[in-house]
Each structure stands twice: as structure tokens, then as C-alpha cells.
Amino acid sequence: MFKTIVIVDDEVHIRALLEQTLEELEGEPRIFTAVNGVEGITLIERERANLVFLDVMMPLMNGYEVCAAVRGNPDLADTTIVMLTAKGQESDRTRGLEVGAHHFVTKPFDPDEIIALAQKILTVS
């Protein structure tokens, strides 16, 4: 069965970068992208995403809110959330943990790191 990954980021280049990076994953997962939190939560729910890359600072609905919404949905109990945070913002991490994020990747991130992390998560789930 194909795994589903949703990328939620308002930056077009970051979405492209993540998309291209994740294309290299084994098992050809399906990849969806959303440009804001609202679109993101819709996609995640619709596609029952296995893995979500979630930016924190976004218009309409920020990453924490999206994360909290995902965690509040029992249908999405298996969805793993990786938050993309800025370094030096320890409070981001704390809040992320509070709303139920599983992993944190600090921008700027290393594509190899993303692939390794995603591979691990998708293999386990």
C-alpha cells in the first residue's frame, strides 16, 4: 500500500524542495502539498496522511493549530507530524511537543536528513 505524505508550507520553494527530496524515497509514496494550514488540514484528513511535514509560521492557520487539529481527530491517530522550526526558538519546540508533534527539523535542513527521517517513519508506520 502506498504511503501518503502531506507537505504544508506557505513557501513555494520549500514545498518544491521537500517534494523533490521526498520523491527519492523508496516505495513511491504519494505526495501532496498545501499552501496554508487550512488547506493542509483538509488534505491531511482527506488523504489520511501517514506523514506530515508542517511549517510553523503560516497564514490563516499556523502549524501548532494544524497539529492540534490533527491530534484532535481520532481517525488520524497514526499520522506522524514533523514540524519545521527555526533554530534558536526553543519555545517552538516546547509548544510543538505540547500540541503533539513527533519530530522537529530545523530550517535550514539537510535533504539527506529529511530522507532518512521520512524513510524511518514510513517503515515503522
Binding site: I14, L17, T21, A86, P108
Partner: peptide, 18 residues
């Protein structure tokens, strides 16, 4: 600023690598 600088930097780094 930290956030704003990181975003393009992420692209530069990530795409160079790709």
C-alpha cells in the same frame, strides 16, 4: 529575521544538494 533568512537559505542549500 531568523525565520525569513532561513527560508531562502533552506532552498539554496536543499536545491544545491538536489
Amino acid at each position: 529575521v531568523s525565520h525569513e533568512l532561513r527560508t531562502p537559505l533552506t532552498s539554496i542549500r536543499g536545491f544545491s544538494q538536489l
